[in-house]
Design a protein around this nucleic acid. Structure first.
Length: 274
DNA sequence: CCGTAGACCTGTGTGC
DNA sequence: TGCACACAGGTCTACG
């Protein structure tokens, strides 16, 4: 569910509330949730720990505790970290009770979400976290970066932008929005993009992500911030979820195609296949 | 290594 | 109303 802007909003909301708090109780009810170490060790490692830092990397939430312990959280499609529960919450999977009166609840309809508690040297257990590409708002993510990442790649540019080792944090919404802003068809093969197009695309990704963070993310269905609020970027979406509606630039009806198993909405006139 | 389909899970919306 | 099927802000894995 959440992409970079949504995860950033959650972290920005929760960090001031959790900083310096001690975890006094860990309860995990869903056996699918903890990826590393085992359920018992996970509880033991986090229990009694004091939260020192809370940051974001790609779509991961990174919580730093003492002795080099890191608590890593990925919300996947429908995960939520909340300080207040809805009255009829049916998908509570775990709770973390803090010594400052806050109880952090983890809810997840589809149960795809993952958590890890690891020390330095245990990185081999972290899956995709180890191979994340640059942050889209970093200097490293640029025209030149895309040019080399797309070289000799035959996959559609849409699939390459969803690849977290090329750029970290983009998902289906913001890739479609960025490709529209850059005027590039989602089905174009990576290697076919010119230097100029890579420059436009890098700039479009930065613009879309920056605006989405300012808008506290997009709530299309499930997403809620750490405080339970919805985002506002859905009002600014130009293509995602708008198949069959008019393009905001030229009025042509937006079309859609399936790429890498994901729906891609685009304007057939503003984003030519060439 | 690269690229794509299927799997993981639960729920909602749509069409017959 | 009931049922089947497609689809959902994400990755992994298996296979050609």
């Amino acid at each position: 569910m959440p992409e970079l802007p949504e995860v950033q909003t959650i972290v920005s909301d929760l960090a001031p509330l959790l900083m310096g708090a001690r975890i006094i109780k860990v309860q995990v009810w869903d056996p699918l949730l903890v990826r590393f170490p085992g359920a018992e060790d996970f509880n033991r490692r986090l229990s009694g720990g004091i939260i020192r830092t809370m940051t974001r990397r790609g779509k991961y939430i990174v919580v730093g505790l003492d002795q080099g312990l890191t608590w890593l959280v990925h919300l996947r499609m429908t995960g939520r970290l909340l300080t207040k529960l809805e009255e009829d919450e049916r998908h509570l999977r775990a709770q973390f009770t803090l010594d400052n009166g806050i109880c952090l609840s983890y809810c997840d309809l589809r149960r795809f979400g993952d958590m890890w508690a690891f020390f330095p040297g245990e990185e081999e257990h972290l899956g995709g976290f180890r191979t994340l590409g640059p942050e889209p708002l970093s200097e490293e993510f640029s025209q030149d970066w895309l040019l080399q990442a797309f070289a000799r790649r035959k996959a559609p540019v849409k699939a390459l932008l969803l690849n977290q080792s090329i750029v970290a944090g983009l998902g289906n919404i913001y890739v479609d929005e960025a490709l529209f802003v850059a005027g590039i068809h989602p089905g174009r093969q990576g290697h076919s993009l010119t230097e100029e197009e890579c420059g436009k695309l890098a700039a479009a990704v930065k613009e879309v992500i920056q605006k989405a963070i300012s808008s506290r993310g997009t709530t299309f269905r499930d997403y809620r911030s750490g405080l339970g609020t919805v985002g506002e970027y859905q009002q600014l979406l130009q293509v995602y979820g708008r198949k069959g509606e008019e393009c905001t630039h030229c009025g042509t009806l937006l079309d859609c195609m399936r790429i890498g198993g994901r729906t891609s909405v685009y304007c057939p006139r503003c984003q030519k296949q060439k």
